[in-house]
């Protein structure tokens, strides 16, 4: 067992954890924060996406002990117009991928804000990127939605980012 200080949604938690415990399981099983979902436990679906110091990661491949002292934000700590936009645009059906989509989108918007390029960015040398639908789709491709709510998700993100369609 190792002692870990996890800061989640602004609250510090002191936990005694088996070092095998993933950040995802720490949240779900030890802190009761079940809003973050487990879809594959292999980094392949994005359902477990949380923000660490504002950056999106997949919590299933993170060991909790690695993230002591970092600022972790889960869906329970998110209060953002993007959430209402998801409802308006029907950016989900079963809702199981939704927490991950929302956290991922928030991390993604911050990346765009910082000028980070993506695989579909044409002019890499330019410091700013325009958030086209193609950019949104590429950047959100780490979040699977088997219900196929992709159109609604793209709409919600575009609306929230204030980009005209």
């Amino acid at each position: 067992m190792v002692e870990v200080q996890l800061r989640v949604n602004g609250t510090a938690h002191r936990l005694e954890l088996d070092p095998r415990v993933s950040l995802l399981d720490a949240l779900r099983e030890h802190l009761g924060l079940t809003g973050t979902k487990k879809g594959c436990n292999q980094g392949a679906c994005g359902a477990c996406t949380v923000l660490v110091d504002g950056e999106r990661i997949t919590a299933c491949l993170a060991l909790a002990v690695q993230y002591g002292g970092r600022e972790i934000t889960t869906i329970e700590g998110v209060a953002h117009p993007l959430q209402q936009a998801f409802v308006r645009t029907d950016g989900f059906q079963c809702g199981y991928c939704t927490s991950g989509q929302i956290c991922s989108a928030l991390g993604m918007l911050a990346e765009v804000e910082a000028g980070a390029p993506s695989a579909v960015t044409e002019h890499l040398a330019e410091p700013a990127v325009a958030l086209t639908d193609a950019e949104i789709r590429e950047r959100m491709s780490g979040n699977l939605c088997r219900c196929g709510a992709y159109n609604g998700i793209t709409d919600a993100i575009r609306e929230t980012a204030g980009v005209p369609s």
């Binding site: 950056e55 990661i57 993170a62 991922s104 991390g107 993604m108 990346e111 390029p117 890499l124 780490g142």
Partner: peptide, 16 residues
Amino acid sequence: LAQALLSGASGQLRNM
């Protein structure tokens, strides 16, 4: 190099 990195995995995984 930038393109190779960006074509790998997902946004979340690249952050890790």
